[in-house]
Design a protein around this nucleic acid. Sequence first.
RNA 1: GCGCCUGUAGCUCAGCUGGAUAGAGUAACGGCCUUCUAAGCCGUGGGUCCAGGGUUCAAGUCCCUGCGGGCGCGCCA
Length: 564
Amino acid sequence: MDVRLAIAQGLAGATGLPEAELAGYIETPPDPALGDFAFPCFRLAKTLKKAPPAIAAELAGKLALPAGIERAEAAGGYLNFFANKADFAAKAIGRALAEGDAYGGADIGQGGTVCIDFSSINIAKPFSIAHLPTTAIGHALSRIYRALGYRVIGINHLGDWGTQFGKMIVAYKLWGENKPIEDSAVRELVRLYVRFHEEAENDDSLNGEARKWFRKIEQGDPEAVDLWQRFKDLTLKEVGEVYKLLGITFESYAGESFYEDKMQAIIDELDDKGLLVTDNGAKIVDLSEWDMPPCLIVKADGATLYATRDLAAACYRKQTYDFVKSLYVVAYQQNLHFRQFFKVLELMGRDWAKDCEHVNFGMVSMEEGTLSTRHGNVVYLEDVLNASIEKTLDIIKEKSPDLENKEDAARAVGVGAIVWGVLYNGRIKDTSFSWAKVLNFDGETGPYAQYTHARCCSVLRKAGYYQKENIDYSLLKEESARSLVKAISQLPDAVRSAAEKNEPYLVTRCVIDVAASFNRFYYECRILEEDPRLRAARLALTDAARQTIRNGLYLLGLEAPERM
RNA sequence: GCGCCUGUAGCUCAGCUGGAUAGAGUAACGGCCUUCUAAGCCGUGGGUCCAGGGUUCAAGUCCCUGCGGGCGCGCCA
């Protein structure tokens, strides 16, 4: 980073062009053999009225070498810079080791608050693989923003309101049994819910009953509220186990029911500001001026809607947390909804509407067809995690029979494999679920990164103490060592751009780079050399790789076991 | 019909604000464990970057058109 600036400074001196502009042009050559930084001279051809290769050659001749650069060389239309290897390695490795667990982070947030709405499960509904993207992405973003000095409020916006709870109560009272509900609450509740829909097809009176019971919940009838609360407690207790497995905690569980009494104020405000129009009995905000369909606020029967609640929640969050940024990690199916909702906020005069962002992601499908809770065709996240842990345990038993605490390692690696799978690609990609795919641990997977980390730990353990001062980094001259240094140095940039784009996979790819580079280095260079100076340099590099992988994994929500 | 997203190796995907011969993993084949964890490493094969125009010194990347796929489009969330 500083080296880039130094180069830009030097170029500015030689060309008389603004430094900031030149800095933006500097890029990385495709092949490290060409250099570490490159300045394409094509863009200067017009202003200087010379051919690019001529400019490059001229600059190479008259440019004073910037700090950290040992050589500049013209190659075609490019002016390539070669960094001082020892300096670069000293800086990169030194930084990773000095900052330790904090390496990769920064203080660009300066304590500003970021609200992240993610996972957002529904009460009495399965916590299925369809929730995996929002859960994994939201968790990773939480950790990434925290590492960047933000205060993060993770919000699990519970789906804990609506007529389905009336149905649940009816089904529960008719067919519910306590034992299965205690043993496996959500599955049993889902079974009751499915049965309700089956029976209601022949008996419409059930629907009337359900409406009546939901009405009772709204009116605060003790029996109804108790049952509703019981469904909620049971569900939260169950999903709590999954969140624990994933290492996730939330600062808030305020969901749909929480905003029930906060929507009228929003409706009144919309009305006062003349934004509300009645259309076919429903109250809407007209957005045709922005080429969007109207945003429904109140139904013809007086009931509120999704958008109403989101508006109330957004205002509540701003008031309560005074966020600088508010993220919604929600599938892309709701792109239009969020555009409408944000626009309405803006029309209400909330200038902070610009700080709200829909972090969308692709959908999870199944080969057989779409997931449908009502037809019981669901894959529970818990089952996927357990299957992965079990498979990992088998592998550990086979490959590391002497390992102590096999269960702990299996948990970390099994869960990591699943989470990593979600964070491996850009958010927007659709994914289709298959057991074979999620249980595949070959290639660029979580286990691969974790395995490499354990390898680093193993070498460092065998090495014992090593002299960390006065290391001669010029001894790291092999290509594999150099590219490892480079990969390690990339983490802070990767973390920053991951936050800028809300794309955790940028961190994932960085971790892969480090892991792959380390494995190559490990194969080509013996780390535990006799020569103490070489040994120390290689150990420092190994230590920095260990730290970088560990931190990257942490930011993604994965553990980094020291043995596996 | 309209809007948004998407199309890169057999498969799953990277490709930074346009830049130097388009990269990984996987699958296939062939090598490497009496040395630091082989969940690893190396090698080989595999591409009209959906198609056609345009802008540019330079297009996988930007613009237009078409085609294929996904999602959405007032009382669900």
